[in-house]
Structure formats: structure tokens, C-alpha cells
Design a protein around this nucleic acid. Structure first.
Lengths: 323, 323
DNA sequence: GGAAAAACGGCACACGTTTTCCGTCGTAGA
DNA sequence: TCTACGACGGAAAACGTGTGCCGTTTTTCC
């Protein structure tokens, strides 16, 4: 089972130098004449040489691989974050591998052992919830994304949920809405509690906590209508979609009678809703990019400490603006 | 940056043998007394030894890693498939890495080079569409999942879409429905065409091709109602949800007046629909498991050739059964 | 023209594991 | 007692790349 891969010695032979010299030429290290470098480069190009990652890893200690460890089996959050991570890392020729722990601590341990054994250069840890999580114990650079580490000495990148929620209120107020209600998820979910807390002073009534579902959105609509709101800001796009559906069934016009906002900018919900939802985009790709940048710096020996909050972006659509 | 990892020689020293012997003891190869094997095993356990994957890869040629190459950026299909793949592979201590090409041929090439350079043991190729795709050109075992390779000599595992669609018809017929309409996606999508073709003889009218959206489901409902159907079978859960919404708006009862079926069993659609959808589950995890099994056999030197069609599963819910 | 310094490139080892080959010891058979 | 064979375990090479060290050549300056 021997692959006929072209090796460094082949390149070196063609260029008329030794393997060590060829290595230096291709990695821009050592003291070599420009002419030699070019000759080796041409030889490498001619042969289509790609250095074997196994040998390189063993020799240099670097694998040029980082792992994205996630508990988000659905991919709803981890996929956009991975995109961002890849954007940054692939520029540096690093590869990204996705490890889904399925929220199983045992599986997480297994993955970590495997990742350390493989010698990944660093790890980005993320999740499907924004609750801070216990740090992982590995002798490697780690950055936490979306869910911060409970250890403030670790580097974490999270979303500024309070600002995101506030942005919807500001937007609605700018449209002249004064009686704003809030329907959101379970009160023991940080993402619900934090957003609700940030905007409660601006509401005409207490936030309604329930679950992250369309059904809850529909049910809560009936409750909230007693307050005669002119706007309903929701804790998720799913809830907002349920609210829109229920309002339409009851004959209320969105946004003329009542404006509605969602949260998450989950395309399948926000765009399929009638009308499409004004919502808050979490900028997960930015999150991933930022996490990757911090990880690279940590790998480079310049670790960052503390929590970094990234801004969200308000996406305006017909559910507040009309057509 | 030297990790104080415990190496084979450390284990060997503790057990009082040479590194080579320790390796044989742990891998159950070579000619060693049981007593020596046990002694080495105990030493390894005491030190918490995990063999370094870099050295192992370089020496044995195996990396115990397989890649899942996908064009499905959303993860809607690739995540369940990856789960299935992992189920099979992690039992054999293999790791799975996900590579998202974002449907960019250049990116795909880059990934392939990288994967070959890293020496992965094999590749599972998948996509977000069921159209057969051009095979990838790598000197490695490859299995295609969901989208078959156009080269019949390759190993492919796909879903039996015709049977899946037929199952909905059989189910509806068993419920006494005789006037069945079909609303589905673009006619140039294989998954739409194949399903439609399989069931056209059982329909009361020609299939309606459009797009994979709720909006199209709503629009098409108006068209199809002129035929006075007692059942509508849809090409996707999104379309079916649109159909249900429109029927309810028009005062038709689902399923009493008209039964509705979806396709895909996409939880966020099938369960959120009113009523929840009877639909066809693609068994993507099975697909992944089967693909991984075939890949393992290919890695083991027993390659499989040709296309394997896996059965789907009908999930019955209120949209055909009532409450 | 000679000496010092700079430029250049080769040699050899390191990385950690696997695996082949071979030596040694013990035992059994002649 | 000598030979033969089997069981056991050690030594060393191999995998492919990176890199420190050192020798050689060229340049430069006096």
C-alpha cells in the first residue's frame, strides 16, 4: 500500500540540491541564494510536490490543523461559525476539523484525547447555547466561541445579546411604536434572560417566557393582545413566525397594526414568515473569524484573556417596514 | 513548545522492555509472552499512554482518519450523514473530519490536495442534491453517499426515492384516498423528477413542478384545488407546509377534507406544520453508516462497486391520520 | 595578494511509532 | 551430549520533513 507520492528528495534531486536545502527553499528559511530557491520551486511545481503532512507534523510539531469542538448537533450555529473559522485559517493553510460531541461528556473526552494525540495546533470550543461552560483541560491553545468559558483567564468570544435586543427596541421606537411587548424562550436560558432584561424597561408589559417554538408564539400572542401592543419583539425567529401567523389569523395586519421582530436571522424562518421578519443577525461568521484570529495568536505564543463581545446586526424586513 | 507527552519508550522503560516490544504488546502483534503483554499494558495504563498519531501515521501509513467531503453548506444533509459515518468509524477508533467545499470546485481541489497530503485513509463524498456527480480523482478509497458517482465502477450509496414516493401513495390509498395530486420542486432536479415519475400513474392530474418553498406550496394549492383532490402529496416538507397553511386559510380541513404528505422529515418543518406532517424519512444516518462500512471494506482492500439503494421510512402523523 | 567575513548549501540527526530481521535462550529429541 | 527448532524479545531501519551545525566557496576589504 505504498503511494507513489513525490517526496522532498525527488524535488531535491531534480533541482540538484539536497533534501534539506530543498526544504529550506520551499519554506523560505535558511541562507539560500534566490537562484537556488527559484530552481527548487520550479522543480516542486514541475513534479506537483505537496509536502507530506505526516512527516512535517512529526518533525516540526505543528500539524496545521485546528479542531472545532461543538455540542450543537444540528449545525445551526456551528456551521456558520466553522465557515468563519475556515475563512481565517485556510488563508494560513490550516485545516479545520469539526467534532460533534452530541452533548455527551464521554464523547467529548474521547475527542479531546484523540485531538491531543493527533497534535492539533489548537481548539475552538462552541455550543448551541450561550450559557458559559466548564473549560476543557488540554495542554493546547483554546478559544471559546458563542458560549464563554467559566474561567475568566480563558479567551472567549461571544455575542452581545443585550445590544442586539436593544437594537430592535430602538428600531421600533424610531418607527413610532410605543407599546412594545416581548415574547421569548425559557427564563432559565441565558439567551432569553439576557435579552429580556436588557429591554424590559422599554416594554409596556412584563416579558412572556415560554419555549422556543412557533406554537408558543401563537399562544403567547393571544395573551399579549390584551395589552393592545403596537409592536411585539420576539426572542427567536421561530416565536416571531408563530406570532405573525396568529396575528394574521386574528385579522391584525403586520406591520400596520402591529410590528413584529424576530431574533437569529435563521433564513428558513425569517424569510418564510409572512411577512418576512425584521430580525437580529448574530454574525456567527464574524464570531468564527474572530475566534480563529485569537486562536492563531495564541498558537503564535500571544494568548488573549477574557471575554470579547461582538456586535450583532439588525436586518430590517417587511414585518416592521411594510412593503 | 515541547509537550511532555508520555511516549512509547517511557512505557517500555517502565515495563522493562524495548520500545519495539512495547509496541507489539499494545497492538497484539509479534511473538510475546502473555506475561510481557500484560506488564506493558499495565505500564501504559499507569502512565496514561496514548500513542502519538503523528509517529504512527508516518510509520504505518495509516492515519485512522477519513474525510467527509460535502457541498451541503447548510448541514441539512451532511450532518446526519456524518453522524452515521461516525457511528461506524469511531468503533474502529477512526476519526471523521468534515470538509465543506461550498460548492466551489477550486475549494474542492484544495481540500483534496490537503487530504491526500495528510494521508487520510479514505473519503466519503456527499452533497445536498441527489444528482450523480463527477467522481473525484484521488489515489484513495472513496465512497459516494446521497449523490452517486457517474462512474459505475465507483461505490455509491443513495436513497431509493422512487420507493419513498410510492410509499406515500400506498399509504394514502390505504386510507381510501383516490384523487391524489402532486406538488413538487423544479423538474430539472432529480429528486423531484424521480419521485414524480414513480407516482404519476397513481395521480389524478399531472405533477406540478415549481420550487422547494412554502410559497410555491401555497400558490400551487390554488391551482390543484380545481381538480378537487382528496389528497396532496408533496415533494418536500417545505412545500407540504405551505399547502397545509393555504388549505387552512381556505377553510379546508387537513386531513378530513384533504390529506397531505411531505418528504424529507425535516423536523423544523414537519413538526411545526399545522397539522404535523406525514412524511418520508430519508434515513440519512443509515446512509452514512452504510457508506462508512463500505469505505472500511475498501480501505481493507475489498472495494465495492456499483450503486446501492437504501430504503426510506414513512413517518405517519396527523396530516394524514387526524388526531 | 592575502586574510577575514559573509554567503551558501550539505550532512546528519530529531520527531515517535511500526515492523522486519536476527540473535539468544531454553527445551526436546536423537 | 549435540543438534534442531520454537519461543521470545532486542536492535535497527524505515516513514518524510525540518533544522542546527559545520564545511566550503565566494566576496570584500586592506
Amino acid at each position: 500500500m505504498k503511494r507513489p507520492g513525490v517526496r522532498m528528495v525527488d524535488v531535491a534531486a531534480l533541482a540538484g540540491v539536497s533534501a534539506g536545502t530543498a526544504s529550506k527553499a520551499l519554506s523560505n528559511t535558511g541562507q539560500l541564494s534566490q537562484e537556488t530557491r527559484d530552481r527548487v520551486r520550479r522543480a516542486a511545481a514541475t513534479l506537483g510536490f505537496t509536502p507530506d503532512a505526516r512527516g512535517r507534523a512529526l518533525s516540526s510539531g505543528r500539524t496545521y490543523t485546528v479542531a472545532l469542538l461543538t455540542t450543537d448537533s444540528s449545525g445551526r450555529f456551528s456551521i456558520p461559525i466553522m465557515r468563519g473559522v475556515e475563512d481565517v485559517l485556510s488563508a494560513g493553510e490550516l485545516a479545520t476539523v469539526l467534532c460533534d460531541t452530541r452533548d455527551d461528556p464521554l464523547r467529548e473526552q474521547t475527542y479531546l484525547r484523540s485531538l491531543v494525540a493527533r497534535g492539533v495546533d489548537g481548539i475552538v470550543v462552541t455550543g448551541r447555547r450561550t450559557e458559559p461552560r466548564a473549560p476543557i483541560d488540554v495542554p493546547l491553545p483554546v478559544v471559546y466561541a458563542l458560549a464563554a468559558s467559566t474561567d475568566p483567564a480563558d479567551a472567549s468570544v461571544i455575542v452581545d445579546d443585550a445590544a442586539g435586543a436593544t437594537a430592535t427596541i430602538t428600531h421600533l421606537a424610531g418607527l413610532g411604536r410605543t407599546r412594545i411587548a416581548h415574547i421569548t424562550g425559557p427564563s432559565d436560558h441565558r439567551s432569553a434572560a439576557e435579552r429580556a432584561q436588557a429591554i424590559t424597561p422599554a416594554l409596556c408589559t412584563e416579558p412572556l417566557f415560554g419555549e422556543w417554538s412557533e406554537r408558543w408564539g401563537r399562544q403567547a400572542t393571544d395573551l399579549v393582545l390584551r395589552q393592545h401592543p403596537d409592536a411585539i419583539t420576539c426572542g427567536s425567529d421561530q416565536i416571531a413566525r408563530g406570532v405573525c401567523d396568529r396575528l394574521r389569523e386574528l385579522g391584525h395586519s403586520v406591520p400596520d397594526d402591529i410590528a413584529v421582530t424576530g431574533y437569529d436571522n435563521w433564513p428558513v424562518m425569517a424569510l418564510a414568515s409572512r411577512p418576512p421578519l425584521t430580525t437580529v443577525d448574530l454574525r456567527l461568521e464574524d464570531l468564527g473569524r474572530r475566534a480563529a484570529t485569537l486562536l492563531l495568536e495564541a498558537i503564535d505564543g500571544k494568548p488573549h484573556h477574557g471575554v470579547l463581545e461582538l456586535p450583532t446586526q439588525l436586518i430590517t424586513r417587511e414585518s416592521t417596514l411594510g412593503t
